[in-house]
Computed example of a mutant assay.
Amino acid sequence: MCLLVLLMLASCAASPQDLSDLKRDHILFSMATQTNSNAFLVYWDATNNEMEPHIKDQKTEYGGCDYKPGMWHSICSTWDSVTGLVQLWCDGRPSSRRFITSGPISGSTITILGQEQDSHGGGFDSKQCFVGMMSDVHMWDYTLSACEIQKYVDELNFTPGNVLNWSALDFEITGRVLTEDKQMTCH
């Protein structure tokens, strides 16, 4: 089993306010099972200025991602369960691949965007939540090629996720979440 998660996100506010909370640690994507609270997690560590993919409760850190509040970013994390290699793509730039852990993620999964679960479906901490806009979340059960990832980053014709497909999600909203059509920017 290979997992690939792609996120298009922007941490920006709809009205003027203190944005200092956006400079804190926060979760972008959280998948938990009953045996692994961080089965697949993408975490921004603001203190160390690094993106941290977590797989089956193991993590690795990637610095060098120019992840600034108030801007759209494309974050992609790949993991191959056979080789145990993880890679992070930040705004279309790939990192080195690193060994993290191998073996499949098994059991019932719960996926939450913008909030760490800390346990299978619960244990939320408001100080870890993502504040901003998120769009185009996809997940595949195989690793995409570099060309396919670049098509996604460039918002070209790409194969939608076969595990999570942003255009065909069955979801539940908890808390203060606004859903709306994606705002297109003019060039």
Rank of each mutant, 00 (worst) to 15 (best):
I27W: 09
V163K: 15
T101N: 05
G123T: 00
N48M: 09
S126P: 15
N165S: 05
S108D: 14
I75E: 00
S77G: 13
H54F: 15
A46T: 05
S11G: 08
S20E: 06
V177D: 05
M31F: 00
S30H: 07
I149W: 08
S15Q: 02
N165I: 02
S74F: 08
P53S: 13
I110M: 10
Q58Y: 06
A10S: 15
D80V: 07
F130A: 14
E155L: 12
S20D: 06
L88G: 10
T143A: 11
S11Q: 13
H138S: 04
Q150P: 08
G70Y: 00
W79R: 09
I55C: 04
D125A: 02
G122W: 13
R97Q: 15
F40I: 15
F171S: 11
W166D: 12
L156H: 14
Q183N: 13
M71C: 00
V86N: 14
G107E: 10
V82T: 15
P16S: 05
L113P: 01
F130P: 09
L178K: 02
S74I: 06
L6F: 13
G70H: 00
D118T: 07
G103E: 11
V177L: 08
C186K: 10
Q87F: 02
D57S: 08
S30P: 01
D21L: 12
G114T: 09
G70L: 01
T33R: 03
T174Y: 13
D170P: 04
E180G: 15
T33S: 05
C186D: 03
G122S: 13
C2P: 05
T111I: 09
Q17D: 00
S135C: 09
G175L: 04
L4Y: 06
D25R: 11
S95D: 05
S11I: 04
D181I: 11
S81K: 03
D154Q: 07
R24V: 04
Q58E: 11
Q115S: 09
F171E: 09
L7Y: 11
S81C: 10
S145H: 14
